[in-house]
Amino acid sequence: SPEVQIAILTEQINNLNEHLRVHKKDHHSRRGLLKMVGKRRRLLAYLRNKDVARYREIVEKLG
């Protein structure tokens, strides 16, 4: 489901952010981070168009 995919991506994004705080010059990982953020944004847009209630619920849960 989109909610699960968004939750997994959010966790991976948070982990990668911590990694990049330590390894500032790791541009390869930064590119992966940007791809993940874009994918999460697309999934959220899809969910917002399909079911606003589910969209609001996941945004509330994940912050």
Rank of each mutant, 00 (worst) to 15 (best):
S1M: 07
S1C: 14
S1W: 15
P2R: 05
P2T: 13
P2C: 15
E3V: 06
E3R: 02
E3C: 07
V4Y: 15
V4I: 10
V4C: 14
V4K: 11
V4L: 11
Q5G: 03
Q5T: 07
Q5I: 12
I6F: 03
I6H: 01
I6C: 02
A7G: 06
A7F: 15
I8K: 11
I8S: 06
I8P: 01
L9N: 01
L9H: 00
T10M: 07
E11N: 06
Q12G: 05
Q12R: 12
Q12D: 03
Q12W: 12
Q12N: 06
I13F: 02
I13Y: 01
N14F: 07
N14P: 01
N14T: 06
N15R: 14
N15K: 14
N15D: 09
N15W: 14
L16N: 01
N17Q: 14
E18S: 08
E18V: 07
E18P: 01
E18I: 08
E18Q: 09
H19V: 04
H19W: 15
H19K: 06
L20W: 03
L20V: 04
R21W: 03
R21K: 12
R21L: 07
R21M: 07
V22R: 10
V22Y: 11
V22Q: 11
V22L: 13
V22P: 03
V22T: 13
H23Q: 04
H23W: 05
K24A: 10
K24L: 09
K25H: 13
K25A: 11
K25R: 10
K25Q: 11
K25T: 12
K25G: 13
K25M: 11
D26E: 05
D26G: 05
D26Q: 04
H27V: 09
H27T: 09
H27R: 09
H27C: 11
H28C: 13
H28M: 11
H28L: 10
H28Q: 12
H28F: 08
S29P: 03
S29M: 11
S29Q: 05
R30Y: 10
R30P: 03
R30S: 05
R31W: 06
R31P: 03
R31H: 08
R31Q: 10
G32P: 04
G32R: 15
G32A: 15
G32E: 15
G32K: 15
L33D: 01
L33S: 01
L33Y: 09
L34C: 14
L34D: 05
L34I: 11
L34E: 09
L34H: 08
K35R: 11
K35N: 09
K35Q: 11
K35V: 12
K35T: 08
K35D: 11
M36H: 03
M36F: 04
M36V: 05
V37P: 00
V37K: 09
V37H: 07
V37F: 08
G38I: 15
G38L: 15
G38W: 14
K39I: 13
K39S: 05
K39Y: 08
K39Q: 15
K39F: 08
K39T: 08
K39W: 08
R40Q: 04
R40M: 11
R40V: 14
R40Y: 05
R40A: 04
R41I: 07
R41G: 06
R41K: 09
R42D: 05
R42H: 05
R42G: 04
R42N: 04
R42A: 10
R42Q: 10
L43E: 01
L43S: 00
L43I: 06
L44C: 08
L44F: 03
Y46S: 08
Y46R: 09
L47N: 00
L47W: 02
L47M: 04
L47I: 07
R48S: 03
R48Q: 06
R48A: 07
N49C: 14
N49I: 14
N49P: 00
N49D: 10
N49Q: 13
N49V: 14
K50L: 15
K50R: 10
K50Y: 14
K50T: 15
D51Q: 02
D51V: 02
D51L: 04
D51K: 02
D51H: 04
D51Y: 03
D51T: 01
V52D: 07
V52K: 13
V52T: 09
V52N: 11
V52F: 15
V52W: 14
V52R: 12
A53P: 05
A53S: 10
A53V: 12
A53T: 11
A53M: 10
A53I: 11
R54E: 03
R54T: 06
R54I: 07
R54G: 04
Y55L: 02
Y55V: 02
Y55W: 15
Y55E: 01
R56A: 07
R56D: 09
R56C: 14
E57C: 08
E57I: 06
E57W: 05
E57V: 06
E57K: 07
E57S: 06
I58R: 00
I58E: 03
I58Y: 04
I58K: 00
I58S: 03
I58L: 10
I58G: 00
I58P: 00
V59W: 06
V59Q: 03
V59D: 00
E60C: 10
E60L: 11
E60H: 10
E60F: 06
E60Q: 11
K61A: 10
K61I: 10
L62A: 03
L62M: 09
L62C: 06
L62G: 02
L62D: 03
L62P: 02
L62W: 05
L62N: 02
G63V: 14
G63N: 13
G63P: 05
G63D: 07
